[in-house]
Simulated scan of single mutants.
Amino acid sequence: MFERLGLTVALARREIESRYRGTLPGRAWIIIAPFLMLVVYTFVFGHILKSRWGADQDTSSFALTLFSGLLLNTLLGECLSRAASVMHSYGNYVKKLVFPLEVIPLSVVLAGLLNVFIGYLVLLVAMLLLGHPLAWSVLYLPLVLLPFLVCLVGLTFLIAALGTYFRDVGQIVQFVLILALFLSPILYPLTSLPESARSYLALNPLTIPVETVRAVLFGSPLPELSQIVAYHVTAGVLAVIGIGLFMRVKCGFADVL
């Protein structure tokens, strides 16, 4: 078990280093990237488009609220986009019968999680600098992110398995990620939609985590308890399906690659 954990961490480190290899700032991009994203979205949506979550919300509050949701979208996009081709990238490892292939999708999630962790640290620092005091509920942030991570692991394993056999999975994933962004309350408040449409947005894997994260960070209303419970159950089912399918078909990866 500890050997596989070590392999997962090593591969995650390789994923991160390969992403920033050859760049001038190097690993500093892990901090620079979320900071630049916060600045750009603040300027575009806050100053140019004059977007607000509420009539009494200022530009900085809107930017922080927007950024908190974009971080989850970034994590989902990074993991699923990479998962579609990750087994092809590690073809030499796949052909080694003794190598535990399940650590490869896990390393993708771990690498993405590190980037988002840094992003949330940037967000918390920005909240303090912009005069938004941190409530004690921020301590619940890792807990409320847990079901999203479970869901993400399941989806990553599922996409990794399908992407090994079908190259066009990557193209489909990119289209689905665009839909997931615009059909979630990241760029707009959920209350701006008709009541009948809100329940459909709850089917998006981003909706409940985004609303829950904003509740613990900014004190906005939590989703309904029934929706939270349903999301936990669905995340667990997706994890079982994704990991189960991956373990079932991984014996054929070497023949495909």
Results as ranks from 00 to 15, higher is better:
27 R>H: 14
67 F>M: 03
88 H>G: 13
78 E>M: 10
70 L>E: 10
65 T>Q: 10
61 S>A: 13
84 A>N: 05
84 A>P: 09
18 S>F: 06
19 R>E: 15
32 I>A: 03
43 F>I: 15
77 G>N: 09
28 A>G: 15
71 L>G: 13
52 R>N: 02
65 T>R: 11
79 C>L: 03
78 E>S: 13
76 L>S: 09
62 F>Q: 07
81 S>Y: 00
31 I>E: 00
85 S>C: 03
50 K>C: 01
32 I>N: 11
14 R>I: 04
52 R>K: 11
33 A>N: 15
43 F>Q: 07
83 A>I: 02
48 I>D: 06
77 G>W: 03
61 S>L: 11
16 I>F: 01
88 H>R: 14
82 R>V: 07
60 S>C: 00
54 G>E: 05
49 L>R: 04
65 T>L: 12
51 S>K: 08
50 K>H: 14
29 W>K: 01
37 M>K: 04
35 F>D: 06
77 G>C: 05
47 H>A: 10
27 R>M: 13
86 V>M: 08
45 F>I: 07
24 L>P: 09
35 F>L: 14
19 R>T: 14
53 W>H: 02
33 A>T: 14
62 F>C: 05
89 S>A: 08
34 P>T: 12
17 E>D: 09
38 L>E: 08
35 F>P: 01
27 R>C: 00
85 S>I: 07
35 F>E: 07
38 L>M: 08
85 S>A: 09
50 K>R: 12
50 K>W: 03
60 S>E: 06
79 C>I: 04
57 Q>A: 13
56 D>Q: 12
54 G>N: 11
78 E>P: 00
16 I>Y: 02
57 Q>E: 14
46 G>C: 08
14 R>H: 12
29 W>E: 10
78 E>L: 15
48 I>C: 07
30 I>A: 15
36 L>Q: 02
33 A>L: 12
19 R>M: 11
77 G>V: 10
18 S>V: 08
40 V>E: 08
29 W>R: 08
14 R>W: 08
37 M>E: 14
42 T>P: 11
24 L>N: 10
61 S>R: 12
35 F>V: 15
54 G>F: 00
34 P>C: 11
81 S>M: 06
85 S>M: 04
30 I>Y: 10
47 H>K: 12
78 E>W: 01
87 M>H: 13
84 A>C: 04
29 W>Y: 10
68 S>A: 15
85 S>Q: 11
32 I>C: 04
20 Y>C: 00
69 G>K: 03
83 A>D: 00
61 S>P: 01
61 S>W: 02
49 L>A: 14
73 N>D: 00
29 W>S: 08
58 D>W: 08
55 A>G: 02
57 Q>V: 05
74 T>A: 10
44 V>W: 14
49 L>N: 02
38 L>Q: 01
16 I>H: 00
59 T>D: 01
23 T>V: 10
24 L>C: 02
89 S>L: 08
40 V>Q: 06
66 L>P: 04
49 L>Y: 15
40 V>Y: 10
80 L>W: 05
70 L>I: 14
69 G>C: 06
48 I>M: 09
80 L>F: 00
67 F>C: 02
28 A>S: 15
75 L>E: 01
88 H>T: 13
82 R>Y: 05
16 I>S: 04
32 I>D: 11
54 G>K: 08
36 L>P: 01
35 F>T: 15
46 G>N: 04
86 V>I: 13
80 L>Q: 03
73 N>A: 09
52 R>E: 03
51 S>E: 02
60 S>D: 11
59 T>M: 05
61 S>M: 10
